[in-house]
Every structure is written in C-alpha cells, then in structure tokens.
C-alpha cells in the first residue's frame, strides 16, 4: 500500500507534465485540425529558456525576491517567451500554407520540430545541461512512510492551479465559449461573428506557454535536460491527448494524468523495461472500445 501510494504521487507528478503539454496539442487540434508536431520542441525550448534564466538571473532575483521569486520568475518568463515563439511558429510555418490543406501543414510542423531541436543544439550545445541545485531546497517529507519532496508538492500544486485556471477559461468565459465553438465548427463559428484569427492567436500563445512552464518544471524535477527531450515528452503528451479524446480540453488533462499514473503503476507492478508497452497497450484498448478517446464526444456522421 505504501509503495502504491508513493507511485501514485510519482505518477501524478509526471502525469501533470503530460497534461500541461497535452493541452497544447488538444487546443490546436480542436480549432485547426492540425497536429502541432513542433509542440514538444517548444516545450524543450521552454526548458532551456528556464535553464538560462535560472543560471544567469537566479542570483539577482533570489537575493531580491527569495527562492520562490526566482522560480516563479523563470516560469513566467519562459511561459511568455514560449507563448511568443508559438505565435511566431504559427505565423511563419502554418498560416501561409494553411489554405493548401492539412497535410502540408503537418509536414511543415515536422519541419519546425527538426528546426527547433537543432536550434537548441546549436545554441546550448549537444551535451546534457543541468539545472542549478538551489532552485528549490531539497526538503523531504515522510508522511506515514510515504516519501515526498517539497519540489513534488510545489509542482503538483502549481500544475493543478494552471489546469484549473485553463479549465475555467475554456468552460466558463465567453472567450472559452468562442474557442469551443470554433473547435466544433470553424466556418459556422466565423459566421456567428467569432473572430477566428483572434482565437488561433490565443491558442497558439496559451498552448505553448503551458508547455514552456511544464518544460521549466521538468527541468527542476529531473535537473537534466537535453535537446532531444522534446520528442519523448511530445510523443507521450500526444498519446495522452488521444487517450483523453483529441480536441477535448478536460480530456487532455484527464488523459495526461492517467497516462502518468498508468506508466508508474505499470512499471511498479509489471516491469520497468516494458512500461511503455503497457502505456501503449492501454492506448490501443481505449481506441478499440472508445475510438474518440475517453472523454471524446460522439459526433453524428455527416450524411
């Protein structure tokens, strides 16, 4: 039981990384019907941006605003920076070729992914980089035999705040309704007076911004980042998106968290070496029985 609870906490921690990244895929897919393959690399870029901020700016910020200030500043700046990068990617790589159809846009997305990965390698070098140690003090709690670190608690709280915030925007505000309307039917939404360009601008800023924040969190959690990390996390988050139902915002959150938990429990009780097999097996099962994902809505077939 102790091990089970501990693995649940670990699973929730990485699950919240997946959920934050998955949101970017899901939002873009919902409105644009495009799988933004560059999203994983935007996440990696966020991780590196946070790394540079913490290495170069940490001394100044922490002396003036404390440790928490340094961390939050790094996340905020990374989020803003990656949000802008997301908008830039949309402007340069997707918008000009979007009229040509969905397939060229996907190829373009892959191109951006390769470009970003190599850009990171050129700027920060091909070696592993390590996040500074002092960002969050290494404090370890033991509650009823369960080990949990302060950093884990911070990450869990922060990502749940972010997820709740996004959920609120999408489900409760007028603008969120506009996004959901555009996801349902772009053309009709446009006819109803929704400015599609504003919606696209918004999702390409918000999705990568969340991804960038997740990048900083991953960097602080594992402390080791490499320029190829975007691919791995991107693939897992994409899986989470499919699992929850692509295009569905709460689905992406649920899918991400579930994926993290499955992964941890799978490796704890079945085999560490086969943990990815276990994850994808679940994905296949879900797709067989619920092809639109766990929370994906059934759509009426067009006649």
């Amino acid at each position: 039981m102790r091990i089970f609870l501990e693995q649940m906490i670990n699973g929730l921690t990485i699950g919240s990384f997946y959920a934050l990244i998955a949101l970017g895929y899901s939002m873009v897919y919902g409105v644009m019907k495009l799988i933004n393959f560059a999203h994983g690399d935007l996440f990696a870029l966020g991780s590196y941006l946070g790394f540079t901020l913490l290495v170069w700016g940490n001394a100044y910020v922490t002396t003036n605003f404390g440790l928490a200030g340094g961390m939050i500043a790094a996340m905020l700046i990374a989020a803003i920076g990656i949000g802008m990068a997301g908008i830039l990617v949309e402007r340069i790589a997707y918008r000009p070729i979007y009229p040509a159809g969905r397939l060229p846009a996907v190829v373009s997305a892959l191109g951006v992914s390769i470009f970003l990965e190599n850009m990171i390698m050129v700027i920060w070098g091909p070696r592993y980089q390590a996040y500074p140690v002092n960002v969050v003090p290494t404090v370890r709690f033991e509650i009823g035999g369960i080990h949990i670190t302060l950093l884990q608690i911070i990450i869990l709280i922060l990502s749940f705040i972010l997820l709740a915030f996004l959920y609120y925007i999408i489900q409760k505000t007028t603008f969120g309704a506009a996004i959901r309307a555009s996801a349902l039917d772009r053309d009709t939404a446009a006819l109803m007076g929704i400015n599609i360009n504003t919606v696209i601008f918004f999702i390409f800023a918000l999705g990568p911004a969340l991804g960038g924040t997740a990048g900083v969190m991953v960097g602080m959690y594992y402390r080791q980042i490499s320029f190829t990390m975007g691919w791995n996390y991107g693939l897992k988050a994409f899986t989470a998106t499919i699992l929850g139902g692509i295009g569905n915002i709460p689905g992406a959150m649920v899918g991400g968290l579930l994926l993290g938990i499955f992964e941890m429990l799978g490796s704890a009780y079945i085999s560490t070496a086969y943990k990815d097999v276990f994850v994808f097996l679940i994905l296949i099962l879900v797709l067989i029985f619920r092809p639109r994902g766990l929370l994906g809505e059934k759509i009426a077939e067009k006649v």
């Binding site: 091990i3 501990e6 693995q7 670990n10 990485i14 594992y222 941890m264 490796s267 560490t272 943990k275």
Partner: peptide
C-alpha cells in the same frame, strides 16, 4: 530514461 523512482523504490 529520466524517472527511476520505481526501480529505486
């Protein structure tokens, strides 16, 4: 791999 919490547990 980056997460070894399971084998380490």
């Amino acid at each position: 791999e980056k997460d070894f919490s399971v084998p380490l547990t």
